[in-house]
């Protein structure tokens, strides 16, 4: 629109405006299509889960202590807790490690080493989850089992997931640190603040919105991860009471049983999917709020 104001030819002006309008319409249509797709998916999940939800089955999610769909028991709550526990554990491990490697890459590492390290992180991010799962099942689980049987446990799932989301945390944190204005650090240095102070008191607080939203993005990935968790978590439906106890995540529940499920059992699995989607939406909303409430560069204020 700014462009057309400078344009003297009314014909050209109208043409440009029309093109602009058409483009806006096309983009709105495409964006609307994406939003519609999400609504359709949610609707589909709701429809498929309805045989169970509609008959008051959602009360069974909390009431029933166990998940035995063939015997009419649909206790989903332990799996929600397990999914959250696995995700939380993975974030608690991956966030300090990822942030530390981001700080190292941004402030301390010589350029060649930093480039090599970044390459390594990208490689780690590219390893398929089933490979992590296989490694966990054949190496990590026996190791834990020799110490605290059965080995397949909340801890194994947390360790494997932490490794999987570490690159996401490290790369987004590094990007957030790199996006800080150069004069911010220069100003801190000019004030005579030590290197440690510059990083801990200036750089990290200023980049915290990017770091936190990166961590939430990683949490979404951890929550949705299926194959690796299925292979190492033990898949017993129970509240996560100990690090060494086996648990079943919502995703693993769907993957383990979907191929074999019929009728209400199937509806129960779709209900798991619905809950999982709602959890992911909640996390995404949180991430959006964090970015809104702490705009980048707020340290200036």
């Amino acid at each position: 629109m700014t462009l057309s104001a400078h344009n003297s030819s009314s014909h050209l002006n109208g043409g440009a405006a029309r093109t602009d309008r058409n483009l806006a319409r096309l983009l709105a249509l495409l964006a609307g299509g994406c939003a519609l797709l999400l609504v359709l998916i949610l609707g589909f999940l709701l429809l498929e889960a309805w045989p169970l939800l509609g008959s008051g089955g959602w009360r069974a999610f909390i009431r029933d202590s166990g998940w035995y769909p063939l015997e009419g028991q649909f206790g989903i709550a332990p799996m929600v807790w397990a999914s959250l526990a696995v995700t939380l554990g993975a974030i608690v491990l991956a966030l300090p490690l990822g942030l530390a490697s981001a700080v190292f890459v941004r402030f301390y590492a010589p350029p060649k080493l930093a480039a090599g390290y970044r390459l390594l992180l990208n490689l780690l991010a590219g390893i398929p989850s089933v490979v992590f799962g296989l490694w966990g099942l054949t190496q990590l689980v026996p190791l834990i089992a020799s110490w605290q049987p059965p080995g397949a446990s909340l801890l194994a799932a947390i360790l494997v997931l932490a490794l999987m989301i570490l690159p996401t945390v490290a790369l987004t944190s590094a990007a957030a640190l790199a996006a800080l204005p150069a004069d911010l650090l220069a100003g801190a240095a000019a004030l005579g603040i030590s290197r440690k102070g510059q990083i801990l008191r200036v750089a990290i607080p200023a980049a915290r919105a990017g770091i936190v939203s990166g961590a939430l993005l990683a949490a979404v990935r951890a929550l949705g991860e299926t194959m690796a968790v299925l292979m190492v978590a033990g898949n017993v439906v129970q509240n996560p009471s100990s690090l060494f106890a086996p648990v079943r995540a919502l995703t693993a529940n769907i993957a383990l049983e979907m191929a074999y499920a019929t009728d209400l059992h199937r509806a129960g699995l779709f209900a798991s999917g619905l809950l999982l989607t709602l959890l992911v939406l909640l996390l995404a909303w949180l991430a959006a709020r964090v970015v809104q409430r702490a705009p980048r560069g707020s340290v200036y204020e």
Partner: peptide, 27 residues
């Protein structure tokens, strides 16, 4: 009945079962 079983690991296919038992002396 399945609800009577107190399992420590629940598996999907045969291969996962074989790997789980082979990796755990008490399984």
């Amino acid at each position: 009945k399945n609800s009577q079983i107190r399992a420590q690991v629940i598996i999907g296919d045969n291969q996962q079962g074989i790997k789980t038992v082979a990796g755990n002396p008490g399984a």
